[in-house]
Design a protein around this nucleic acid. Structure first.
Lengths: 121, 121
DNA sequence: TGAACTAGTAACACTTGTGTTACTGGCGCA
DNA sequence: TGCGCCAGTAACACAAGTGTTACTAGTTCA
């Protein structure tokens, strides 16, 4: 499903961006990394519903896409820290913009839902 | 996979926003509607790889989410026009921000790809 | 001694999303 | 008469994404 190339026609860059951040957990993972690096289990604790395995994969994909970097401390027990790369940090305004719209969306649909309830009664 | 509710904790609003716009074609469809309403087949012609059926479904879902509206002109042959709702128009800065980051992402990864080629040679 | 911590990997099942094909009906045109 | 236009729907196949379970190794703590 990945595009091999992007010529920028017709909003292709939007597709490119969404391919990177739009998987189920990636947006939220990036959001949690916006301000500070986090360790693997630190992230895992942030998302109790997210399994070990899936977190690993999402992190690995984000790493391959160049938006986060993985730093391994050669300690026992192992310590691995995930942080945004320069490219990842550029996502901050975009993510905040998404969040802002998300608030409006949730408010609006909640309103619409209430309206439908009103009609139903 | 849809969330029933969003309490806003930990970037949940980002998830909410992504659930609306992040399906394969939705970002691009919205992008094409940013400036003017479009007819069904007009959109279809913009995406030759996108099948009739899929376009219908993506449009229907966007409509259910309240970001686009569907206006039927009772003519023969039928005319159906899709345009952004108020909520949809609020997405404009977000989509442009995504596009901007997409450009940087594509440039960066192209650069990285070149580097790997350099190494391989 | 055995459990829990760290950060993983491998094999598999399940769910969702995407796409294909064939069909609808009223009209214009050759 | 038969084709294409318009905007769809229905039934189905297939690919991708998500999630579950069981496993790894070295260390610390009870």
């Amino acid at each position: 499903m990945r595009h091999a190339s992007f010529d920028g026609a017709g909003g292709c860059y939007i597709e490119a961006a969404l391919e990177v951040i739009a998987d189920k957990w990636k947006g939220v993972i990036l959001y949690h990394l916006l301000d500070e690096p986090k360790r693997f289990n630190e992230l895992k604790r942030s998302f109790p519903e997210l399994s070990h395995r899936i977190l690993t994969r999402q992190l690995r994909e984000l790493e391959n896409d160049g938006v986060i970097s993985r730093k391994i401390y050669p300690e026992i027990p192992p310590k691995v820290e995930y942080s945004l790369t320069d490219l990842g940090r550029l996502l901050k305004p975009t993510l905040l913009s998404l969040e802002g719209w998300g608030v409006k969306y949730v408010e609006t649909t909640r309103y619409l839902r209430n309206c439908q309830l009103d009609k139903a009664e």
